[in-house]
Each structure stands twice: as structure tokens, then as C-alpha cells.
Computed example of a mutant assay.
Amino acid sequence: MQKNQSRLSIFFLAFVCFFSSIYIAQQLDPELKSLINKRLNKSHGVKIQYFNAEQAQVDQKLAKSVFLPKDTFNGSYTRLDDNISFDEYTQNILISKQKLLIKEAAAIAFNSPFPVLTSH
């Protein structure tokens, strides 16, 4: 039953989006706009779909907060006479963390492969 309601809601939203795009060139009657808004506000199927979309966003944020490492930085420095060198394991961790930050800044999913750059 839920599956049929979901399909009906998706069909209704697609129907509304399709016909609303046809009427973009024309101004809708204000009374018609108010009737459409009232119907959308009273539709339980539409409310359920909005709730599901919000829940998916919350779940995505929760997954990121659980699976991505958390860092805390406290800044201070001391000038050394020699450059700092890290072992290979630490270098791999730092590079992986940098890739995750780049993916997040580029809005790429954290479990997607890192894009390979080609040089010409």
C-alpha cells in the first residue's frame, strides 16, 4: 500500500512539475495559485515525501559525522634547524585526509574514487 502511495505521490509531483513548466510563460491566476498551494499543504503524500527528503539529508549528515575523521588543531610553532620528515605511514594518512577534504570541498561523495588528473 505504501509503495502505491509513493508511486502516486511521485506521479502527482511529476504531473504538477510538467504542467507548471508549460505555464511558466503565462501568469497564473492568483486564485488558482492559492488553490494549488492549499492542495499541496493538505496533501499527506507530499508531506511524507518532504519528510523523507529531509530524513535522507539528516542521515547523510549523520553518516558523514560518524565515518569521517575528526581533527582538532591547536596552533603553535617552533622554528627548527632541520626540516620535519614523516614516516611513510603518517604521510599516507595526511595525504588521505587531504583527499577527503578536497572531495568535501568539491561536493564529491567521500566513498567515490578520487578524480584522476591528466596532464597534457
Rank of each mutant, 00 (worst) to 15 (best):
A107T: 14
E104A: 13
I95C: 05
D29H: 09
E104N: 13
L35S: 15
I95K: 11
H44V: 11
K103L: 05
L35V: 08
N111T: 13
A56W: 03
Q27L: 09
Q55W: 08
I93M: 14
L32C: 07
F12N: 02
R79F: 10
H120W: 06
L8A: 15
P113F: 03
T118Y: 08
G45P: 01
C17V: 12
N92T: 13
Q57E: 07
Q27M: 07
K38P: 00
N37C: 05
F86Q: 04
R39W: 05
L68F: 00
S65Q: 15
I95T: 13
S85N: 09
P113Q: 09
S21Q: 10
K33H: 05
S85P: 01
N83A: 15
R7Q: 12
D87K: 08
K42C: 05
C17Y: 08
N74L: 14
N4Q: 14
A106N: 08
I95V: 10
D87M: 04
N111A: 08
Y77A: 15
T72Q: 10
S6C: 06
N37E: 12
S9K: 04
F114G: 02
M1R: 14
K38I: 02
E104Y: 04
S9L: 07
A109C: 04
I108N: 00
S76E: 09
Y50Q: 15
D82H: 12
A14S: 13
K38Y: 04
N37W: 02
S76T: 10
K103H: 03
V16L: 08
D71I: 14
D87F: 03
V66N: 05
Q55S: 14
N41V: 02
I48F: 02
L68I: 01
K70C: 02
I36K: 02
L101I: 08
L62P: 00
M1N: 12
S65H: 15
S85T: 11
S112Q: 15
N41D: 14
K3A: 14
D29I: 01
T72E: 08
Q91D: 14
P115M: 03
S6W: 02
L100Y: 03
A109K: 11
S119K: 15
D87P: 01
E31G: 07
P113G: 05
D81N: 10
R79T: 10
L13N: 02
N83D: 12
Q49D: 04
A53S: 13
